[in-house]
């Protein structure tokens, strides 16, 4: 028994070391004095202050946050609608095709999504002069795969929700829309929050799709990072990475605790 325990702990330690050492090394070397990322030359925060002066990078970050925010809102609406159809509309003719179409973007290589959407946008632009490639096309493209993730999250919540709660509300005189807003929505709300955060992150993280569908005026943060990384290791990117890791860790921790509590409260 205890031999197995030790094996289990070793496996977990090694596995998490594999997952976390790269991230930790990024943070450590972001405080390195030297430009050569792997040679330690003393503690310094100068890369952070340089980062704060990098107008281009900050501009790209702001653009990415804007796109991520709008994409997340759009994706939550679309993904929730899709989840409702998949779980509740048992007899809808659109259910089956929607099921396949929602699953596909989850695994579809982003390079395919990127190219195919670009070709669509180019054709549309030729046809009717709209949409101009830039922020809008990136949001449209991101929401196409983000909504699939939102659907998965909301769907699993809807499936586990007791159907008779909605029937009870209807039985007490509430019309379907009112049932949705007073009963269904509050109960699946945590999954909507999780889906929103997921969609936001996916958008903030995307390089490939944005590279295809974005226009000359709209360079997102990952596009900026990529062009900088291609030239080699740069301590400024380390500093940026550390900030992202910190923000994400804190956000995930808070979200995790909140959801854990909610879960506990709702489970009788």
């Amino acid at each position: 028994m205890s031999k197995l325990r030790w094996l289990q702990i070793t496996v977990l330690l090694l596995g998490f070391a594999f997952l976390y050492i790269p991230m930790i090394s990024l943070i450590v070397y972001s405080f390195n004095e030297s430009r050569l990322v792997t040679v330690w030359a003393g503690f310094s925060t100068k890369w952070y202050s340089e980062l704060m002066d990098n107008r281009q990078l900050l501009g790209a970050a702001w653009l990415s946050i804007k796109i991520g925010f709008l994409n997340a809102c759009l994706s939550v609406i679309l993904g929730t609608l899709a989840a409702i159809v998949l779980v509740r509309f048992r007899r809808s003719r659109m259910r089956k095709p929607l099921d396949v179409m929602v699953a596909a973007p989850l695994v579809m290589p982003d390079i395919i999504i990127g190219l195919s959407l670009l070709l669509l946008f180019v054709s549309l632009e030729n046809l009717m002069g709209w949409p101009e490639r830039g922020q809008l096309t990136v949001i449209l493209a991101h929401s196409t795969f983000s909504m699939a993730y939102v659907t998965v999250v909301v769907r699993s919540r809807l499936v586990s929700m007791d159907r008779s709660l909605e029937e009870a509300a209807m039985d007490l005189g509430a019309r379907p829309l009112w049932v949705f807003f007073t009963v269904t929505l509050p109960i699946i709300a945590p999954s909507l929050v999780a889906g929103w955060l997921l969609a936001f992150t996916l958008s903030m993280d995307d390089l490939v799709v944005a590279s295809f569908v974005s226009g000359p005026g709209a360079t997102t943060l990952p596009m900026m990072v990529y062009s900088s990384v291609r030239l080699g290791v740069s301590p400024q990117i380390n500093a940026l990475a550390s900030i992202i890791i910190l923000v994400v860790s804190v956000a995930v921790l808070i979200a995790g605790i909140l959801m854990y509590r909610q879960e506990k409260r709702l489970r009788h």
Binding site: M23, D205, L207, I237, A241, I244, I245
Partner: peptide, 10 residues
């Protein structure tokens, strides 16, 4: 949840 690009970069 952290950036894919940055983890590859690491």
């Amino acid at each position: 949840w952290t950036s894919f690009l940055i983890r590859v970069y690491a």
